[in-house]
C-alpha cells in the first residue's frame, strides 16, 4: 500500500483541523482542532515508521524505525500536559469573562 495514501489522509485531517481553527470561535473547539492536527501528524509519523521498518537501514538496526513511534509517544505526553494547562486557562477565562468566544478576547489589540 502506497505511503501516499497515508500522507493524503494525514494532510486531509490536518487541513480539517486548520479549517476548524479558522472557522470556529469557541475556544474549546479550537483547542480540539489543535488536538486533531496533532493526531494527524502522529498518524503520519507512524506511517513513516512502518515504511522505514522495511528499509535496508532498519535491517541493520532493529530499533531504527522505532524512533518515530517514540516521537509520537512524546507528542502525546506533551499534548496531555498542554491540554491540562490549556483547559485550566480556558476555565479561568470563563470565570473572568463568562465567555469563551475567542473574538471576545481581542485584548491583543491594545
Amino acid at each position: 500500500m502506497d505511503i501516499k495514501y497515508y500522507i493524503a489522509l494525514s494532510l486531509t485531517l490536518f487541513t480539517i483541523g486548520v479549517i476548524g481553527v479558522l472557522t470556529r470561535r469557541n475556544a474549546i473547539i479550537i483547542f480540539m482542532c489543535v488536538e486533531l492536527m496533532l493526531n494527524a501528524v502522529n498518524l503520519l509519523l507512524v506511517a513513516f515508521s512502518n515504511m522505514h521498518s522495511l528499509s535496508v537501514a532498519a535491517k541493520a538496526s532493529p530499533t531504527f524505525a522505532s524512533d518515530a513511534q517514540i516521537f509520537v509517544f512524546f507528542i502525546m505526553i506533551v499534548a496531555a500536559a498542554e491540554v491540562s494547562v490549556g483547559l485550566s486557562i480556558i476555565v479561568m477565562l470563563y470565570r473572568n469573562t463568562h465567555n469563551i468566544d475567542v473574538n471576545f478576547l481581542n485584548r491583543l489589540k491594545n
Partner: peptide, 13 residues
C-alpha cells in the same frame, strides 16, 4: 517517490 507501507507488518511498533 512512492514507497510501500506493509500493513500489519514490521516490528517497530
Amino acid at each position: 517517490t512512492s514507497q510501500q507501507v506493509m500493513v500489519g507488518a514490521g516490528n517497530a511498533g
